[in-house]
């Protein structure tokens, strides 16, 4: 019964998310384009699939993974694992936290529906020279490194702008050197990765860390992990393209 209620709630939530999109699409279709799209029924069916699919996906995550993932993020950061340390935190005591950050960043990104969508499209458009799966792994590696570094920053309490600005500089250098056709896709992948699956778990991790480490405030230091998770995939996707290119030219 409880499951059914959860399903109904999630369906309502997804409907509410879709409502503004549907209104805008319909409005422009009727008022501006004034043309019925081809195969209207099929399109509506597709929307229904997306609606039902996202609902089931979210309810399943809520049931199965989010509660454990979030408690885990909090538990790992508590003194139980780290040991009773007094005074200033030593960044070396937090090995499991970095490991968890890297692992969960990778794992949630692989399951991110928005990233699946973009990588499918990229494979189709590149005529198969970019593999959807390879692209997703590249993005996931980027998020993994980003989130791990982000937790390190929270532990050490170093200023966020230093990391982000350094990241921008690396991106600018890579942009100059990498394969031209990958650049727009790489820039996109930063925004795509942080959606339904990654944001809740990563946010819980940041808040948990910032509230348990002495001298950190969850309000101020808890932010910034999402920024890491959206910056690093840009680098890893460009790196992946460079590697891919080198391997291909090596074969010929």
């Amino acid at each position: 019964m409880e499951l059914l209620a959860n399903l109904a709630w999630a369906a309502l939530g997804t409907l509410r998310d879709i409502a503004p999109i549907a209104v805008i699409l319909l409005g422009f279709q009727i008022l501006v384009l004034r043309r019925r799209p081809d195969r209207l029924l099929r399109l509506c069916g597709g929307f229904a699939y997306v609606l039902v699919g996202l609902t089931l996906f979210l309810v399943g995550l809520e049931e199965a993974l989010f509660p454990i993932g979030e408690t885990m993020a909090l538990q790992l950061t508590s003194s139980l694992v780290i040991g009773e340390s007094t005074g200033a935190p030593d960044w070396r005591d937090y090995g499991w936290v970095y490991a968890f950050a890297a692992a969960i960043g990778f794992a949630t990104t692989v399951a991110e529906p928005a990233l699946i969508a973009v990588s499918l499209k990229a494979e189709e458009i590149s005529g198969g020279s970019l593999s959807a799966f390879g692209l997703r792994i590249a993005v996931a590696v980027g998020v993994s490194v980003g989130v791990a570094l982000g937790t390190f920053r929270i532990v050490t309490g170093t200023p966020l702008p230093y990391y982000i600005i350094a990241g921008y500089i690396v991106v600018i250098f890579q942009t100059a050197r990498t394969v031209k056709s990958i650049v727009p896709l790489a820039y996109d992948s930063g925004g795509v990765t942080t959606s339904t699956v990654t944001v809740p778990v990563v946010t819980a991790l940041g808040l948990g860390l910032a509230s348990t480490i002495p001298g950190r405030s969850p309000l101020i230091d808890g932010f910034g992990l999402i920024a890491f998770a959206s910056l690093f995939p840009i680098m890893s996707v460009m790196g992946y393209a460079m590697l891919n290119d080198r391997l291909k030219s090596g074969k010929q």
Partner: peptide, 11 residues
């Protein structure tokens, strides 16, 4: 859910 979502994308 994820499978339905992927099919819904394509159609």
């Amino acid at each position: 859910g994820l499978s339905l979502f992927v099919q819904g994308l394509e159609i």
